[in-house]
Each structure stands twice: as C-alpha cells, then as structure tokens.
Design a protein around this nucleic acid. Structure first.
Lengths: 251, 251
DNA sequence: AATTATCATGCATTTTCACGCAATCCTGTG
DNA sequence: CACAGGATTGCGTGAAAATGCATGATAATT
C-alpha cells in the first residue's frame, strides 16, 4: 500500500466518521501504529487534520461541513435545486436521492399543486414535514449513516414496486468515460436501481464534480435523461458530456 | 472514545440541555466520574463552561427563563427518556415510536455499546445520524405527516418481518378502562402491530396523559410490559393501573 | 449537627507518544 | 549488474498522557 493512498484513506475515514483512531487504522491495514502515527503527525503539520491523543479529529469539528462544504457551493446548489423542481408536473411521482444537493430540491419543490415524493433518505423525509401539497413515501431499510439513506435488500425490494416519473440523482463524481460514480458500493447499487425503475433520471452536478471519478460507478452518463449543471460551467467542459446524448440543463 | 470527542460531547450536552451532570455522563460513557470531573475542570479552565457542584453549566446564564418555562414537561420527558434508555441491553433490537416523548429516548440512547434501533419515523432516524454505536433500520411507507411516521400496508409488512426486543410506545392518552389510545386510526393500527411483534412494550407517559381517552385504542393497559411515568405522579393516580398487571417505572 | 454526595489530590497502571536506530525496499546511476 | 542514496517501515526506549482508585476535604441536604 502506498503512503499517499494510506493518507487519503485516513482522510476519508475522518470525513466519514468524524474521527480517526490510530490503533484501529494500524490494525485494519496491518501496519504498526508508528507508521500511522507518523502519517497523522505529518498530516497535522500540513493542516489536514487535528492531532489528538489516540488519533485525530477534523480541524474544526463538523461546522466546516456546514459552513465550508455548504456555503461555498450553496448558491449553485440552490439554482440546481430550483431548476430540478421546475421539471415537476402535477400528479407526478418524484424520487429524491439523499445528499446535500438534492436536499436543495426539497426546499424548492412546487407548493401550488400536488405530487408524490419518494425518498430513501429520512433526512429528506423529515425536511418535507411542513410541505403543504407533497405526498411523501419513505423507502425503508438499513440506514447507511454516512449519507443517511436506506440501503439493502429491503430498500431494493420497496423501490422495485414503484415507477417514479422523475428521479433526481446525486453523485460525488461525473466523468465522460467512467460515468457517474459515488464512494459506496451499496449506495451505488441502490441509485442504479432507482434510475432503472424511473422513467427519467436527472443528475444534479455542482461544478467541482465534473471530470472526477469515485470508486463505484452508478451509471454511464448516456443512461440518464439529463445533467443539471451550474451556468458557470464552460461549454468546453461540457462538450465531452454533450456528445454522449445527455441533455444538459444550465441553472 | 477519544478525549477530545468526549469533551465536545459534553459541550453538546451542555448546549442541548443547558446543564451537564457529571455522574450521568460518566455512566452513559462507562467511564469513572473522575475522568469526567477532570474534563469539566479542564474545560472550565479553558473558559468553555462554568463548573458547578455536581456538573457544569453554560457560561452565559441565558436560560434561567427558558429552563423554568419549558423544563417542567421537558425535564419530565427527559427523565422518561433516560429511564427508557436504561432498559436497553447490548445487542438488542429496539423499536422507537414516533413523537416528541420517544424523541427524548433517542437523545439518551447508550453510547457505549452496540444495539439496533428500528423506527418508522424519519425524524427519529434523522436524529440518529451522529449516534456512534446504533445500527438504524428505517421502516418505510406512506408518510403520515401529522405525526411523521410511515404508515400503510408497506409499513405493516416491513414490521412483520422484525421481532424487536423492546418497543417504546408513545400515545396521547392512557386510561385504566379504555386503555392506551391515540388520535389517528391508521397510526393506532401500526402501533398495535409493532407491540404485537415486540417481545416487550413500554409506554412512556407524561403526567397529563393519565386518565384521558383519545379516539382510537392501541392496546389495553394490561397488554404492555410496563408504564414509564414521572415520579411526581402520585400513588393514588397509579393505583388503577397497577391493578392491571402493568409494571410501573417511575422516572 | 449529622449525613450524604461531590470534589481535589496524589499515586499506580495502562495506553499512547516521539525519537533514534536498524532493516528493508525502491530508484537511479555508473 | 552492482551499488549508493533515499524513503519507508518496525522495534526499543523512555517520556507523556489518560484513567481509575484511595484518601481526606468540601459542599449540599436533612
């Protein structure tokens, strides 16, 4: 295993769990704790994490998630959400993926006509508590806490019974060749299944996700009905996607 | 558990409850009170909180008004929640009903051992996002927005496949003759079904719910394993329930 | 005033840490 | 191919930190 690989693994763990325990990492990688500690020391010096006794913590606990990850692209996400919400027609059944991007769709859903929202994310469902006209259907299953979505056989089975008109998909990366991808295998399978069950699938993509690749592919780009991207993205960046038959909506 | 993590947990508790009790924290984390006291001392030195006998308080005493106003029934709910959470044993499967009372159970779940939480409330599921040791299973179905729980055939079917060890039931009314009841027919059916699927059922009852009746009966009082009530409730009030074989736990 | 609960301190034990050193591996050059 | 130079890793050492327990002091309650 490469050092840089190990370090990014540590960062992933940190993002996912909000903590890293040196002993655990050492054990799971079959390396000495010294090596891990050395890594942690170096990464702390680079300002990537905060060293604490026993392991490491994110730099400023959790709030950078809100203020950094959210604020930076919040305006863009809002516009994506509004664009997506504008596609909805009365009486349709909409499937909303989990994640911060699709959460913005939730907040901008139409309020002047009725429709049905299906979601496997309890967070999204909870956000819809006060929506006046949306009928909400929750997909159950084992909760994958990192992205707060239900997964597993039960979720797959429940999804199979529905035929949504629209699916708003969220992913962590999009690439012309490697397609739309996300970090978790199980999650990717669920997303794929929802897309196959739905009449149309639109991907919401903030600019920084373009031309990137994550571990598990969800779908090829050509398999979705369209990409919704911020208007700042240049035509040059979009050209490789355009040639894949994907409709592109700028928001 | 990392020390820094513990400290931020203490700060969270402080923000949420407006107070921290050393003994409680020690117990919920399976650590000695010395350790917690040491933390509190250090954090007080850093100006993060104000040390008081028995625990700690926030620096700015913004809440004396708050606490007196709201705490009467909230504090009672908290104690009910703590009592309920104390019944949980490692590895068990717990079903949590929806509602504000059971939400307090969620916040006080043990953090020092693993167990599984099942719930048909997306709100409860969302609250468990940052719980370190709880495995969460969401029951899906059509969302009944008034109480924010999944209902309907799909929910019933999913519940049928589980055999929880404990069910913490919330109702709007309890009466010795008319039993435990709630306002919605569909909701009552679901609660009843969960109770029948579970090995043991405990009802959380704040004082004002005693000797009242709502439209739809969930279960007779005799059908549950026990009632969890605030300690202020008098023995005279409880006598009619006691005679129904219901164990009564004062919190 | 008596009793109980909570606290601070010192000490012992365990865990975690940083440093130095040696073994190993990779790389590039003669 | 051989070998030097650098990087990476694991181990031993003593130091530092974290934790729990015992003890006497202090605060709260009755």
């Amino acid at each position: 295993m490469l050092t840089s690989q190990r370090k990014s693994l540590i960062l992933d763990t940190l993002r996912r769990d909000g903590q890293v325990i040196a002993k655990q990492v050492a054990e799971s990688l079959s390396l000495s704790e010294d090596t891990i500690r050395r890594d942690l020391r170096e990464m702390a010096a680079e300002g990537l994490l905060k060293r604490v006794h026993g392991g490491a913590m994110p730099l400023s606990p959790e709030l950078p998630d809100f203020s950094t990850r959210k604020d930076v692209s919040l305006a863009a996400k809002r516009r994506l959400g509004a664009k997506a919400a504008g596609l909805i027609r009365p009486g349709q059944m909409i499937f909303l993926d989990g994640g911060t991007t699709t959460a913005e769709v939730t907040r901008q859903l139409p309020r002047n006509f009725g429709f049905t929202v299906v979601t496997h994310s309890p967070t999204i469902a909870a956000d819809l508590e006060h929506h006046p006209t949306a009928e909400v259907i929750v997909i159950g299953g084992r909760l994958y806490k990192h992205s707060m979505v239900a997964t597993g056989a039960a979720a797959m089975a429940a999804i199979s019974q529905l035929r949504p008109d629209l699916f708003f998909l969220g992913v962590t990366a999009a690439h012309p060749v490697h397609g739309l991808s996300t970090g978790d295998f199980e999650e990717a399978a669920i997303k794929r299944h929802i897309a196959h069950s739905s009449a149309e699938t639109y991907v919401l993509l903030t600019g920084e996700k373009l031309d990137r690749v994550s571990a598990c592919q969800v779908l090829p780009v050509a398999d979705v009905s369209g990409l919704i991207v911020p208007e700042e993205v240049t035509q040059a960046q979009l050209a490789p996607y355009r040639s894949l038959n994907a409709a592109i909506l700028a928001a």
